[in-house]
Each structure stands twice: as structure tokens, then as C-alpha cells.
Design a protein around this nucleic acid. Structure first.
Lengths: 135, 135
DNA sequence: ACAATTATTGCAACACTGTTGCAAATATAC
DNA sequence: GTATATTTGCAACAGTGTTGCAATAATTGT
């Protein structure tokens, strides 16, 4: 998977910053925060990164990952995420030792019995514990 | 359930601000943010509220609720939350219309099959959709 | 390859969120 | 009521995220 191709597929211009952001996330494997990216790409403007992340989320390249701290984290969307419509109904796992958050793409969020009158449109499941590398 | 009693049960001094915070949350029904409290109690100092929330969380009076925005929200703990040890393994529901987040105390977070090598210590489940009042 | 067009970037400035240190005030215990 | 330890309020600060606008760079068509 190549960065400029991803950009092209989503009607976005292929700029150095955007390619760098995508490549960084691809290499990282875990969900990243704005701050992670800022550290990895010190030459890029803070504001531009905020806008880049917002754009990527809109276009369906990234989805937000709920984290227990209150900083937003992002991960690459699966192939079924179109513009605006995110289908990231999978769980996320945060290791308490290495602090990395990863997508558990194969773990879908189970349906739970909601009280009468409640209906579900989406859900976020964040599991905390120890990952394989830290066990 | 009375505010000074809750404070007494947790070895905390019964001050006006603390009682007001607890009463506000009791009346609110939904999970509240620092900002919600600040608006409701304009006479209270911002910093004091931050410290009050932190203290309540430590002592097991409140637990954090994961929210899809990146502001922390808090709800009253059930009776089984001792100091430090939170047993809030229930789901939370956020209504997309009224924006209220409530605890679904009766809905526990289901166990999911984790990849080999991963172990779970806790989990957060946030379900989004429409609540009964907005349906 | 070049100009015109449109999207993207960088900067300045700002509002909001959360934290720390310290002195003054207040709740409890005696 | 006084002593003691906790809690509060203030000032000051660091970090996070946003907006407006001018400068810059990527595409489109020729």
C-alpha cells in the first residue's frame, strides 16, 4: 500500500506532508496521536497536521480510536471505510505496559441488550490489559 | 442518598463545593464533564473543581466515562467501587440527539476473544445511538 | 512545458483545558 | 474554642485545538 495511491483514491492532492503522515502511520502499526506525528515530523506545521488529520478522517482514510487519556488517536481505516461513513466496528486494545493502542480488526464489537427505547448506530470498545509483546 | 453522607463514607471533609458537586451529579442523571460542573457552579474555582473531581475519582465516588469527544466525563460509581479500585465494567450510552451520556449499569461489557498473548484487565464500551427520550 | 485554477500550507493570534506552588481559609478533633 | 490538617482560591504556566489570511504548491487544460 503506497501513500500517494491512498491519497489519489480519496481525491486528495499528493503533498509531502500528507505522504509523510500516511507513511508514519503505516510504519507505526499502533494508533497515533497528533503529538506522535508532530514529534515524528518536526518540519511540519502543527496546524497543518491538525487539518491533515481532520481531512483524512473526513475522507475515510483514518478513523478515531477512543483512548483512556483524553487525547485523540487515529488509525488507518480498513478498505470498507468510505468518505464520511466509517465502518470501524472493531475493538481496540491498549497495553498498559507499552501504552500502545492497536486495532483488533478481527474482534468485532458484540451486540449487547440495550434497554427498551434505545437504539444503536455505532459503538466503541476499548480493552485494556497486556499485549503479547509485554506479557 | 445524601451528599455529606457520601463524603463521610469516603473519609472526605464535607465542604460546600463538594456537596454541590455531588448534588449536581445526582440530579443530572447523565455523565458530566468538568465544564458542565463549572457552568452549574460558577462560584466555584476552576482549579478546585479539577481537584475535587480527581479526589472523588481516587476515593471511588466517581468513575470516568469514555466519551467520543476528548473531554473527560464522570459518573457516580456504584456501591462496589472502593478507593482506587473501580468496578465499572458496565457499558455507557451516548445519545446522538440530546448528547447525554448515561451509564447502562445493567449492561456489562461482554468478554471477547482476544488474540493469543493478549490479556484483559479492564474495558470500556461506549455505544452511540438514540436514547428512549429522543427516539 | 506553461499559465490558470484550486487546494494546501504556514503563520499569527487566540480560546480552552488542565496543572503546580503557595498563602489564606475552613472543617474536624480535642 | 483552639490546634491541626485539609481544602480552597489565586496567579502563573504548559499543552491542545481552532480560525483567518496570505503565500505556496499541486493539478488541469492547453
Amino acid at each position: 500500500m503506497d501513500a500517494s495511491k491512498i491519497l489519489g483514491n480519496h481525491q486528495l492532492r499528493s503533498t509531502a506532508i500528507r505522504r509523510n503522515v500516511i507513511e508514519f502511520i503505516l510504519n507505526e502499526g499502533a494508533a497515533v496521536s497528533h503529538q506522535d506525528i508532530e514529534k515524528a515530523l518536526p518540519q511540519a506545521d502543527r496546524v497543518t497536521l491538525y487539518r491533515t488529520l481532520a481531512t483524512f478522517e473526513e475522507k475515510g482514510i483514518l478513523h478515531q480510536v477512543l483512548d483512556d487519556e483524553s487525547v485523540k488517536k487515529y488509525a488507518l481505516c480498513g478498505t470498507d471505510c468510505g468518505g464520511g461513513h466509517h465502518h470501524d466496528d472493531h475493538a481496540h486494545f491498549k497495553c498498559e505496559k507499552c501504552e500502545e493502542t492497536v486495532c483488533l480488526d478481527e474482534v468485532s464489537i458484540p451486540a449487547v441488550g440495550l434497554p427498551v427505547g434505545y437504539s444503536r448506530t455505532s459503538a466503541n470498545l476499548l480493552i485494556m490489559g497486556t499485549c503479547r509483546a509485554c506479557a
